[in-house]
């Protein structure tokens, strides 16, 4: 169910590696747990994030959750479309719902993330 070409962390973020850049979003499981997303607070281009650091917030009608950087690096692009269409995170968590692109500071950090198979098992335990 979770795309095999992505890596995942325990905070339910996903990472798609494109060269030296990591595209980051939240998983389908996470969006389902949150419910309809109504607001996303994202960092700015140029912000430097350390792995595990809070880089934003995501709000549904009922709850608010922090977003944690799954890898370290510098923000090179932010999905501004989410300002006007945060519901993309619900409808297309792995596509239009992407949040930020980070220039990887240390590609070795990717080894600490889960494969889709590992993440499927992780989610099965949480559900």
């Amino acid at each position: 169910m979770n795309p095999a070409d992505l890596r995942y962390d325990k905070e339910h973020e996903w990472v798609r590696v494109e060269g030296d850049t990591a595209v980051i979003g939240i998983s389908d499981f996470a969006q389902d747990q949150l419910g309809e997303v109504v607001y996303v607070d994202l960092p700015s281009v140029g912000d430097v994030l350390a792995v595990g650091e809070t880089f934003g917030e995501i709000e549904s009608v009922k709850s608010v959750s922090e977003l944690f950087a799954p890898v370290s690096g510098t923000v090179v692009e932010v999905n501004d479309e989410l300002d006007s269409a945060p519901e993309s995170i619900n409808s297309d968590a792995y596509g239009a719902g992407w949040m930020v692109k980070i220039k990887l500071a240390d590609p070795a950090e990717l080894d600490g993330l889960m494969s889709s198979v590992e993440y499927d098992a992780f989610v099965a335990n949480e559900a």
Binding site: G35, E36, V38, S60, V61, K62
Partner: peptide
């Protein structure tokens, strides 16, 4: 029940 289809719908 807190929601079925979704709160906004």
């Amino acid at each position: 029940p807190v929601q079925y289809a979704g709160i906004i719908d």
